[in-house]
């Protein structure tokens, strides 16, 4: 490894170095903590031949590279979050050395403490809702018929199909809103995320809700139960629940 930098995974408090040693960072590197006045930056050493400015922008276009780095980043963040209040950092935050890492902790200390206070004792839950099957489209009748009867029949078919599609879309949207409203009541904070494309997720059903909820650890059973109740209330939709996640979606510093 030529020139090296310090890759920052997360900000935390009070993590036992022995427990950090159980985690493996990017390229199998040792995971360490850099401390400044009670704040810990969770870091590991990376080569700038891979994480330099030019190299990074190139690598970020490579799904295999991104897959590995994103998963490792997530595993380290999860590993720390399972042990202490943790604020994840966005992917690819790289400093030149520990002094530079400490200067970030010093500069952002009040904001970082605020984020840690917000996520402490809480976890993020991910909920996705998928609509039931979309009504089959009427077979495309491309040929133009001049016979009045078939034209009228076509229009009727067409209208019926459009109505069915609109009805299905409205029902799916209403169900998604209901799930989100109900779960928001069981969470400290809630966020709707962008809907995911089926080509990335491999899902055939249409996603109608992709949301994250910040939930007190003591209320996670209640949150699970609320999700189950919503499944019963909306039998046509599929409601997926995953978690607990580190509080990625609630770690932004500019929030109150």
């Amino acid at each position: 490894m030529g020139e090296a930098g310090r890759y920052m995974y997360a900000i935390s408090r009070w993590v036992d170095p022995a427990e950090l040693a159980e985690l493996r960072g990017l390229g199998g590197a040792e995971v360490q903590a850099v401390e400044h006045e009670g704040l810990l930056a969770i870091v590991s050493t990376v080569g700038l031949d891979e994480f330099g400015e030019d190299e990074l922008s190139e690598h970020l276009q490579d799904l295999d590279w991104l897959d590995t780095v994103a998963r490792t980043h997530h595993e380290v963040v999860s590993g720390v979050a399972s042990r202490a209040p943790t604020a994840p950092l966005r992917l690819a935050t790289v400093c030149m050395d520990d002094a530079s890492v400490r200067s970030r902790l010093a500069r952002w200390a009040p904001d970082l403490r605020q984020v840690l206070d917000r996520v402490a004792g809480r976890a993020e839950w991910s909920v996705k809702v998928f609509a039931g099957p979309i009504p089959e489209p009427v077979p495309a009748a491309r040929e133009v018929s001049t016979a009045p009867g078939s034209g009228a029949a076509y229009l009727a078919r067409r209208k019926a199909h459009v109505d069915r599609l609109k009805g299905a879309a409205e029902q799916a949207a209403t169900a998604a809103d209901d799930v989100h409203d109900e779960l928001t009541r069981h969470a400290t904070a809630a966020r709707r995320l962008a809907l995911q494309d089926g080509r990335l997720t491999g899902e055939e059903a249409t996603m109608t809700l992709n949301a994250a909820y910040l939930v007190d650890s003591s209320a996670s059973d209640e949150f699970r139960a609320a999700t189950q109740a919503l499944r019963d209330r909306h039998p046509d939709e599929r409601v997926d629940l995953t978690g607990p996640w580190p509080a990625y979606s609630f770690a932004a510093m500019d929030e109150t």
Binding site: G5, M8, I11, L48, F51, G52, E53, L56, S57, L60, A70, H73, H74, V77, A87, P88, L89, R90, L91, A92, T93, V94, C95, M96, S100, R104, W108, L112, V115, W245, Y248, S249, A251, A252, M253
Partner: peptide, 15 residues
């Protein structure tokens, strides 16, 4: 989550 969420702190490597 790792690309779009989480704390944003500018490191020494700009991306």
């Amino acid at each position: 989550r790792v690309l779009d969420k989480g704390i944003v702190i500018a490191g020494d490597i700009r991306v």
